[in-house]
Design a protein around this nucleic acid. Structure first.
Lengths: 153, 153
DNA sequence: CCTTGACTTAGAGTGTGCTCTAAGACTTAG
DNA sequence: CTAAGTCTTAGAGCACACTCTAAGTCAAGG
């Protein structure tokens, strides 16, 4: 039994809008979808699987252009898998790099939050809160830091 | 000795363009910068520190609106730190969530790469490569998975 | 003196990725 | 028979975050 979903159903199940689904198809991210007698799109299981993978590429930051490339490779050389692998590997390392950056920056934000917490604690017991010189972890080092005069942000 | 950098120097050191620096100032992300006698901006160490922190918020995906809010809190209630902390905590958990999603999706991409590698290996030794049914890890489960008929992307 | 170059402003333009509109066909429910 | 609802298309519009332009000021170097 082949499931044959409408665009609306696919929108609901994938989280993409019907607009976006058509937009993706128009732009070659999704191969032309089979039509019902009335011309309406009917999505197969494979279509859904493809769309789900696409959205994973999207949410990891792959630009539309690159997804177009990837989709073109699948359509034009379905039995030549190497180029696709390389494309994905390039993307993977970009995502990895991005995540590394995120986690570093998150550490700085964490640090700031903690700094604020300490200020709040001090505020509870202090008379009129003299702001200590602010230290900030940077790209180079979290511990060893020169004082920035009077930054209290 | 107060360092007093030009906008160009700040652009070079922060990686933002001079356009972006002015844009940020115009939009209240950066407080009005002190001017030299000729009206040119002169950035202090504190300004730089602030801009560096801003870019961390930006690169972790905080929208301009929220950075405006944060900057407004710093300017308008410099000694009330709680709201800022909460704002950052909200952002932190958003970033955390985003990173979790990224790493899950990255796992799927990794899986695909490996799948391709296996196809390439098989291709070297096989006669004419019959594609196995493709399995894909999904949000729900990586191991237990129904077969999708004939998807070979 | 004059050119080069960095700066200023307000405001227009750009790229990305959607997101929606308009006009029309078709199906189903009342 | 009609109205509501879902689909189709081509193409316009939008949000975001820049990015650049135009027109002008100013200072230093040749």
């Amino acid at each position: 039994m082949e499931t044959e979903l409408t665009i609306q159903q696919v929108a609901n199940s994938t989280g993409l809008s019907v607009h976006t689904l058509r937009y993706y198809e128009r732009n070659g991210l999704i191969a032309p979808i089979d039509r019902a007698a009335n011309g309406h799109r009917r999505y197969s299981d494979q279509n859904i699987a493809w769309i789900e993978f696409l959205t994973k590429l999207r949410t990891t930051g792959m630009p539309i252009r690159q997804m177009q490339q990837f989709a073109a490779l699948v359509r034009e050389r379905p039995d030549e898998v190497q180029e696709r692998r390389i494309l994905l590997e390039v993307h993977r390392s970009a995502v990895q790099k991005h995540m590394d950056q995120l986690s570093h920056h998150l550490a700085v934000i964490d640090w700031k939050i903690q700094h604020y917490q300490e200020l709040e604690k001090a505020r509870g017991s202090d008379q009129d809160c003299i702001y200590p010189v602010q230290e900030q972890p940077t790209t180079s080092s979290i511990s060893e830091k020169r004082a920035r005069t009077g930054s209290i942000s």
